[in-house]
Nucleic acid binder design. Structure first.
Length: 277
DNA sequence: AGTAAACTCCGGAAGC
DNA sequence: TGCTTCCGGAGTTTAC
């Protein structure tokens, strides 16, 4: 499921393929995949150039030269790809935007439709209308400082629930939460405000390390994830706990356990990540 | 107020 | 073959 590294990989791929290109008309196969109404008619993107492609949290943003920004939330099964227009179009493709006078197109596909598209006016910094497209969104884990991170942890909630909360810190989902907590040797159900300063620092290091390595390997393809070229990621082969139930911990050989934390399936090593100090 | 849990969306996979 | 159940990102609702 697309989290920060997958969104980053897609954004980088799109930057290579559509930056500076002019968009043609958009065609919605599922009009309700456009989640906002009234910011601007979709026809306003036609004929405008892509001036910026970037990521915020788990979302991919495409900014145009007329200050309109397309925001893509990938949900669980979202795919954002560039393909030749004459190539077979898979089912559940909800939006197609022509490129290069129609030779190629940008395709948004989302089998379960937990994702969506927003068209925002005045860019993203124009705060006003961004509404559900982006906010409320916490700071970026790859940019946050340790003092700020520690202050985010001053709550009684379970640490994993906190990390999953996009309004606290942006971009982490189930996979990278589990992986980061394992790297930091912290139990996923530990109370955030029980972590020692050393544990908090280890956790931020774990988050950064796992995100950077996942980005380097093009993200994790668990079910539907593909990059902008339609390729699989490679990081799923490097997972140390996620979906490794009953397999040996890479550090101590203890079988990885699966429990439910924050209503999410949660994988951890009972020896390396003890419940209490 | 802060936190947690339940419910909603959706469709594919797995189990019976 | 045909049910039923599970899963999950994220918003909303309900309950402590």
């Amino acid at each position: 499921m697309p989290e920060l590294p997958e969104a980053e990989t897609i954004a980088r791929g799109l930057r290579r393929t559509i930056l500076g290109r002019r968009l043609g008309p958009a065609r919605f196969t599922r009009p309700d995949i456009l989640r906002n109404r009234g910011d601007a008619p979709v026809s306003d993107i036609t004929g405008h150039r892509v001036v910026e492609v970037f990521r915020r949290g788990k979302r991919v943003l495409i900014k145009l030269d007329n200050d309109l920004t397309l925001v893509f939330a990938l949900g669980m099964t979202g795919q954002l790809t560039v393909a030749r227009t004459d190539a077979a179009c898979p089912t559940h493709t909800h939006l197609r935007i022509a490129l290069d006078r129609g030779a190629r197109e940008l395709r948004f596909r989302d089998v379960r439709r937990f994702g969506g598209v927003w068209l925002l006016k005045d860019g993203v910094t124009g705060q006003k209308s961004r509404g559900r497209a982006l906010g409320p969104l916490g700071p970026e884990p790859l940019e946050i400082r340790i003092t700020q991170f520690r202050s985010l942890l001053r709550r009684k909630r379970q640490i994993k629930a906190l990390l999953l909360d996009q309004s606290i810190i942006a971009g982490l989902g189930n996979i990278y939460c589990d992986e980061a907590l394992h790297r930091a040797s912290i139990h996923p159900a530990a109370r955030a405000d029980d972590l020692t300063p050393d544990q908090s620092a280890a956790l931020l290091r774990g988050i950064r390390a796992v995100l950077r390595e996942a980005i380097r390997r093009g993200g994790s393809s668990i079910s539907d994830y593909r990059d902008a070229q339609g390729n699989l990621g490679y990081f799923q082969h490097r997972h140390r706990v996620y979906q490794r139930t009953d397999q040996p911990c890479h550090r101590c050989r203890t079988p990885i356990q699966r429990i439910i934390v924050a209503a999410r399936s949660t994988h951890f090593c009972p020896a390396c990540q003890p419940p209490r100090v």
